[in-house]
Design a protein around this nucleic acid. Structure first.
Length: 857
RNA sequence: GCCCGGGUGGCGAAAUUGGUAGACGCAGGGGACUUAAAAUCCCCAGCCAGCAAUGGCGUACAGGUUCAAGUCCUGUCCCGGGCACCA
């Protein structure tokens, strides 16, 4: 390592603004983060989830991109060909809301936000390749959404059917789930209705089997995420069972799906969803049932609400025939049966299903035990979980004594003989509805022709451009009122036709952007050979809240693109790091039924004995505030912390260091701006130490103990980097500085130690590391320096400190020569522990080599 | 309600496969420097008892497995994320 005199000016005082400006200017001048395809080098594609341009960066963004940047810079120093791009998830609902509030078109609002947030990202010093920047609201991007849509449409992977939406009867508009608050429209307060409207779907279920099976081939993904996706896809094996019935003289069959065919002999009724044809039939016959069905149809759309409503039902008056016993079973219509899952109907076995049990008790329906459970054969109230366990069949005629699997086999075989059932695999996953009745999104490239039906827009006419100057008014999609957009000619027959005005779900935009980053500027193809070089993403970083939808849709799209011949891989993301959310307290004032959210910085919380917040007062006027809980930072709850203030006051390096140091990436981070000061103080100390060393002349070999400490800490830090525990890497930097500061002068050990410290810091606080590296004359740029590895010779020890326990209680430590054998260690320990052992006989001695001795008496 | 996580000092956290619980920091207390403050530096600090040596307790709660449990198992409570139109 060079010990040449100072190679760059080094001021006494640490001035982060200046250091950062200089470093950033240098990186721009040298094109430091431009990435080029180079088959000779191992590539590393590092990607953080792109932001929605909501206005300004929030803490979650800063955390996300800092983590991504640490990984990017670390792998760069390890010699990889790294690409880290950035773009904008620029379509979406908030732009329309802002447009309504400010009478500004969503496009202008979006572009202004992008410009501002881009400056913020640049100010944070992220190693981003801006040459690859994209925004999903640009025609040159969404053209390919549309192109792919027409390809999927041709294959039947995109298709039309009806779907259910929230309908605001006052504004005459479709509402997003977010816009429904306690069952009412957020702007009008009107009770929201359900509507069934035609929409386009992507047939993600065609890939269900593959999406599930491939989870096993993703060792770089957190188990937690894979488990969530597995449960979401929800493969279940069961039996499709038919219950014959006669209606108006016609023979029909009510089909249900069950995973518990072994309990078929205990079925005492069937239940259908309100949207089921049998319910519709009953509603026509009986106005009371009609009213009930209507009530169910009006109710909630969201599953979370549906699952919590009171279970209600009515008998339809229809009876079906049990396929094996021939018994007549009543059919009920019930609000807990979902039309979207399975057949929209279930068989009810109250003795062995908790929900059926509650329903049967409520309505006095028979309960017939058919399984022997661990507590016996009866199912006396109250309900117990063991009633639902599998066991031998009873009261089931020919099936008595059979266990679960053979019973299912036998019953399925008997049903099959009668053509009233067969084994079936059922998925929880539903097809992806992509139509949105909104303006600010990618137009769906379909033309409706009276003669030809739904005709996809030909390639030559793509993109279908979205007019950018409209301002929505809350009463539906303004595209519907724009003849210049809707009026067109049928591409098939040339007659006048109407253009589809629905736009695509913004998840479509974000399901392939990672691949487009690798084919920037190509106007002739969606993806090209460059995408095949960079894909898959080696490291993807983003919030855990995307564990299912975004990541699953991206996995589906990558397969669809593979099947179009555009990609060679099936999985988009080799390694996934799901960062925890940044949370903050929230408070509101009850302003006559309306919640007026007050920023947490204005609240003075009152806590109970356990430190839990129970209430708060507003600073200044002392108004009583209600504690709104700990949650994600959001505009609606007015509890965001603006990172810009932090950056302005301390600089980007302090903000980055703090966010890395405060907590491991996967933890939720409860925001507190009190402890940033310590990170700033640390960087000032690094600076001061570097100034001291730069001024001194290097002499002597230095302290081997200090060197050992530095290399021990480095060794741990390298392990922590591998497992993405960056907070302890930041700690390691502090530990190294603490060790170096105990020395008095400059020597080989401190020179090496400081160079290690700067290289460890380089991914976290790149500006100060860049500056000091040059100032100390270590040669070249710190970014280009080799990653430090511990020297095994420095880690050598001839003695090992053992922890000594007596009966499992720690009683002290014992330095033992490395060469000592087991007998010698035991003797040493017995001797050292004599005062605890007294005269009791030693039963056994446990020696964990290199760690611990436990004397058991 | 269902699926997935989490709970360790006043606070953020650490403890690699079960092996010294609390590294590294924040806030706090004491001291040095200073006319003073800021900045900086040094020392202390899980809780309880004790002048101290030391002893007892302690990783949400209740059990269990083990020579040994923050870590594994069972149950409970609380907090967070997702639930298909927020992104």
């Amino acid at each position: 390592m060079s010990t040449s005199p100072t190679a760059a000016p080094l001021n006494e005082r640490y001035d982060p603004q200046r250091v950062e400006r200089d470093a950033q200017a240098h990186w721009v001048e040298t094109g430091a983060f431009r990435s080029i395809e180079d088959p000779a080098k191992p590539k590393f594609y590092c990607l953080s989830m792109f932001p929605y341009p909501s206005g300004k960066l929030h803490m979650g963004h800063v955390r996300n991109y800092t983590i991504g940047d640490v990984l990017t810079r670390y792998h760069r120093m390890r010699g990889m060909n790294v690409m880290q791009p950035m773009g904008w998830d620029a379509f979406g609902l908030p732009a329309e809301n802002a447009a309504m509030a400010n009478s500004v078109p969503p496009a202008k609002w979006t572009w202004d936000n992008i410009a501002y947030m881009k400056r913020q990202l640049q100010g944070l010093g992220f190693a981003l390749d801006w040459d690859r920047e994209l925004a999903t609201c640009r025609p040159d991007y969404y053209k390919w959404n549309q192109w792919l849509f027409t390809r999927l449409f041709a294959k039947g992977l995109a298709y039309k059917k009806t779907g259910v939406v929230n309908w605001d009867p006052v504004d005459q508009t479709v509402l997003a789930n977010e816009q429904v608050i306690d069952g009412r429209g957020w702007r009008t307060g009107a009770v929201v209705e359900k509507r069934e409207i035609p929409m386009y779907f992507f047939r993600i279920t065609a890939y269900a089997e593959e999406l599930l099976a491939a989870l096993d081939g993703l060792p770089g993904w957190p188990e937690q995420v894979k488990l969530m996706q597995k449960n979401w896809i929800g493969r279940s094996e069961g039996v499709r069972v038919g219950f014959p019935y006669e209606l108006d003289g016609e023979k029909k069959t009510l089909w249900v799906f069950t995973t518990r065919a072994d309990t078929l002999m205990g079925a005492t009724f069937c239940a259908v969803a309100a949207e089921h044809p049998i319910a519709a039939w009953a509603a026509r016959r009986d106005p009371e049932i009609g009213a009930f069905v209507e009530e169910c149809r009006r109710g909630a759309v969201m599953e979370a609400d549906l699952a919590q409503i009171e279970k209600k039902g009515m008998a339809t008056g229809l009876f079906v025939t049990h396929p094996l016993s021939g018994e007549k079973l009543p059919v009920w219509v019930a609000n807990y049966v979902l039309m979207g899952y399975g057949e929209g109907a279930v068989m009810a076995v109250p003795a062995h299903d908790e929900r059926d049990y509650a329903f049967a008790r409520q309505y006095g329906l028979p309960i017939k035990p058919v399984i022997r459970h661990p507590l016996g054969e009866r199912v006396d109230p109250p309900w117990q979980a063991v009633y639902a366990e599998t066991g031998a069949c009873i009261n089931s005629g020919a099936y008595d004594g059979l266990a679960f699997a053979p019973a299912v086999e036998a019953i399925a075989a008997d049903l099959q003989k009668k053509s009233l059932g067969e084994k079936q695999v059922q998925w929880r996953l539903r097809d992806w509805g992509v139509s949105r009745q909104r303006y600010w999104g990618c137009p769906i490239p379909i033309i409706h022709c009276k003669a030809c039906g739904d005709v996809p827009v030909p390639d030559a006419d793509l993109p279908v451009e979205l007019p950018e100057d409209l301002v929505p008014d809350g009463t539906g999609n303004p595209l519907n009122k724009l003849a210049a957009f809707t009026d067109c000619k049928c591409p098939a027959c040339g007659r006048p036709a109407r253009r589809e005005t629905d736009t695509m779900d913004t998840f479509v935009d974000s399901s392939w952007y990672f691949a487009r980053f690798a084919s920037p500027g190509n106007d002739a193809a969606m993806l090209d050979a460059r995408a095949r070089y960079w894909m898959p993403v080696d490291q993807y970083i983003g919030g855990i809240e995307h564990a299912i939808l975004h990541l699953l849709y991206s996995r589906f799209f990558t397969r669809a693109l593979r099947d179009e011949g555009l990609l060679e891989v099936a999985e988009p993301f080799t390694n996934l790091l799901t960062q925890g959310m940044v949370l903050a307290e929230s408070y509101y004032r009850d302003a006559g039924g309306r919640r007026e959210w007050v920023h947490p910085s204005e609240a003075e919380p009152e806590r109970d004995a356990k430190g839990k917040i129970v209430a708060a007062k507003r600073r200044g006027d002392g108004a009583t505030l209600v504690y709104g809980g700990l949650g994600t930072m959001s505009k609606s709850k007015n509890n965001g912390v603006d990172p810009q203030a932090l950056i302005d006051q301390y600089g980007a390096d302090t903000a980055r260091f703090y966010i890395i140091f405060a907590s491991p990436p996967t933890n939720t981070l409860e925001w507190s701006d009190e402890s940033v000061e310590g990170s700033f103080r640390f960087l000032k100390r690094v600076w001061a130490y570097a100034v001291r060393i730069a001024a001194a002349t290097s002499a002597g070999a230095g302290d081997p103990l200090m060197r050992r400490t530095v290399h021990e800490v480095l060794s741990q830090a390298n392990y922590d980097l591998q497992r993405h525990q960056f907070n302890t890497v930041a700690s390691a930097c502090m530990k190294i500085l603490n060790a170096l500061e105990t020395g008095s002068g400059r020597d080989a050990v401190t020179d090496e130690g400081l160079s290690i410290l700067l290289r460890l810091l380089a991914p976290i606080t790149p500006h100060i590391a860049h500056h000091l590296w040059a100032a100390l004359g270590y040669g070249g740029e710190v970014m280009a320096a080799p990653w430090p590895e511990p020297d095994p010779a420095a880690l050598e020890r001839d003695e090992i400190d053992y922890v000594v326990q007596v009966n499992g209680k720690t009683r002290g430590t014992l330095a033992v020569a490395k060469s000592a054998d087991r007998a010698a260690i035991e003797a040493l320990a017995a001797d050292a522990m004599s005062k605890y052992i007294e005269n009791r006989p030693v039963k056994r001695v446990i020696v964990v080599p290199g760690r611990l001795i436990n004397v058991v008496l």
